[in-house]
């Protein structure tokens, strides 16, 4: 009886840990709605990638390869206008319609400038998962990405 109780507590604890709220949840939804004209409420599944290509150490080759390796149905990759070569490469790998070029650095106004590249997954309007892209977490992120 006790072991069931402890297992339940442990499960609840793990669930709590895995569901840390994304601090820019509201801002992300507002950014998509007001700037990109995407209303995630109407979509079954939506993946948002914000590549921090202006930050040293972000948007590396390994991160780009990882992003390219994922399925991009209902995906949007946000990128700055600074690196034309990278934009060309992205268009080739994931398709022009899946890219938003943030010419006016709007992500900063929505508090979405980070040191690490970001992936956020929505399902039926709800934020299901988010992660900062790090080489050591690729496997875990891919698993989550394919599960939702």
């Amino acid at each position: 009886m006790n072991s069931i109780k402890y297992t339940l507590i442990l499960c609840l604890f793990l669930e709590f840990c895995s569901c840390t709220k994304f601090e820019r949840h509201e801002e992300t939804i507002r950014f998509l709605k007001d700037e990109v004209n995407i209303n995630i409420d109407t979509m079954d599944r939506f993946n948002l990638f914000i590549l921090q290509d202006q930050i040293c150490g972000a948007c590396t080759n390994s991160i780009l390869s990882f992003v390219y390796s994922l399925d991009h149905y209902n995906s949007l990759v946000v990128i700055s206008n600074d690196n034309q070569l990278l934009i060309k490469q992205l268009k080739k790998n994931i398709g022009k319609s899946n890219i938003y070029i943030d010419k006016n650095r709007l992500i900063e106004r929505y508090g979405l400038r980070y040191a690490k590249d970001l992936v956020v997954i929505f399902n039926k309007g709800e934020l299901k998962y988010y992660a900062f892209l790090k080489d050591e977490d690729f496997e875990e992120i891919k698993k989550a990405y394919n599960n939702f």
Binding site: E27, R105, E108, R109, Y110, G111, R113
Partner: peptide, 13 residues
């Protein structure tokens, strides 16, 4: 300041 009263965020610029 990180955030402005209108809800927007400040940045490097």
């Amino acid at each position: 300041q990180e955030k402005n009263p209108d809800g927007t965020y400040n940045s490097w610029n």
